[in-house]
Deep mutational scan, measured.
Amino acid sequence: AVSDRLIGRKGVVMEAISPQNSALVKVDGETWRATSGTVLDVGEEVSVKAIEGVKLVVEKLE
C-alpha cells in the first residue's frame, strides 16, 4: 500500500494528539490523521511506527 512507505518517516504534529484523540500530522508534505499512545503537541517531530487502517501510528522523535 502507498501508506506503507511512510513507516519510519519523520513528520510534524499539526494538531495536538492524545491517546483518546487522533489528529493531523504532516509527513513528506502530505497531511495524515494519526494516533499516538502519548500526548503530542503542535510542532513536535514524530516518527511513523505503523499504519492502522487509514491512520498513522506515531511516536515522539527522541
Rank of each mutant, 00 (worst) to 15 (best):
A1D: 10
A1L: 11
A1H: 11
A1W: 13
A1P: 11
A1M: 12
A1I: 11
V2D: 09
V2S: 10
V2Y: 10
V2P: 15
S3Y: 12
S3D: 08
S3F: 12
S3M: 14
S3I: 11
D4E: 12
D4Y: 07
D4F: 08
R5V: 07
R5Q: 07
R5G: 07
R5N: 08
R5S: 09
L6C: 06
L6E: 00
L6A: 01
L6G: 00
I7S: 03
I7A: 03
I7N: 03
G8A: 03
G8V: 03
G8W: 00
G8S: 03
R9V: 05
R9Q: 08
R9M: 14
R9P: 01
R9A: 07
G11M: 02
G11N: 00
G11H: 01
V12M: 07
V12S: 04
V12N: 02
V12D: 02
V12I: 12
V13C: 05
V13A: 03
V13M: 09
V13F: 02
V13R: 00
M14S: 04
M14A: 05
M14T: 08
E15P: 04
E15C: 14
E15Y: 09
E15H: 08
A16H: 08
A16N: 08
A16F: 15
A16C: 12
I17H: 13
I17A: 15
I17G: 15
S18L: 08
S18M: 08
S18K: 08
S18H: 09
S18N: 09
P19K: 10
P19Q: 10
P19G: 14
P19C: 13
P19W: 11
P19A: 12
Q20I: 09
Q20C: 14
Q20D: 13
Q20W: 12
Q20H: 12
N21V: 09
N21W: 10
N21P: 05
N21F: 11
N21C: 13
S22L: 13
S22G: 11
S22V: 12
A23N: 05
A23E: 03
A23M: 15
A23S: 07
A23R: 03
A23F: 15
A23L: 15
A23C: 13
L24N: 05
L24S: 06
L24K: 06
L24A: 05
V25C: 05
V25M: 03
V25P: 01
K26A: 09
K26S: 10
K26D: 07
K26T: 08
V27M: 03
V27C: 04
V27R: 01
V27Y: 01
D28R: 03
D28A: 07
G29C: 10
G29K: 05
G29R: 03
E30S: 06
E30W: 08
E30G: 06
E30N: 07
E30T: 07
E30Q: 11
T31V: 14
T31Y: 15
T31Q: 08
W32Y: 15
R33L: 15
R33K: 10
A34N: 04
A34P: 01
T35F: 09
T35S: 08
T35H: 06
S36V: 04
S36R: 00
S36L: 05
S36M: 05
S36D: 05
G37K: 13
G37Y: 14
G37L: 14
T38F: 09
T38S: 12
T38I: 08
T38P: 04
T38K: 07
V39S: 12
V39C: 13
V39Q: 12
V39A: 12
L40Q: 02
D41E: 14
D41Q: 14
V42P: 07
V42W: 04
V42L: 06
V42A: 07
G43W: 04
G43I: 00
G43A: 03
G43S: 02
G43L: 04
E44C: 12
E44I: 08
E45C: 15
E45D: 06
V46P: 02
V46S: 01
V46T: 01
V46M: 02
V46H: 01
V46Q: 02
S47P: 01
S47M: 15
S47Y: 15
S47Q: 14
V48A: 01
V48G: 01
V48K: 00
V48C: 00
V48T: 02
K49E: 04
K49H: 06
K49Q: 07
K49A: 07
A50G: 11
A50H: 06
A50Q: 05
A50I: 04
A50Y: 07
A50M: 06
A50R: 09
I51P: 00
I51G: 01
I51Q: 04
E52D: 13
E52F: 10
E52V: 12
E52I: 13
G53I: 03
G53Q: 04
G53N: 04
G53T: 03
V54Y: 13
V54F: 14
V54S: 14
V54I: 11
V54G: 15
V54E: 15
K55W: 15
K55D: 08
K55C: 15
K55T: 15
L56K: 01
L56P: 00
L56T: 01
V57Q: 05
V57H: 06
V57L: 08
V58A: 02
V58G: 00
V58I: 05
E59Y: 05
K60W: 03
K60S: 07
K60Y: 04
L61K: 05
L61D: 06
L61H: 07
E62R: 11
E62N: 12
E62T: 12
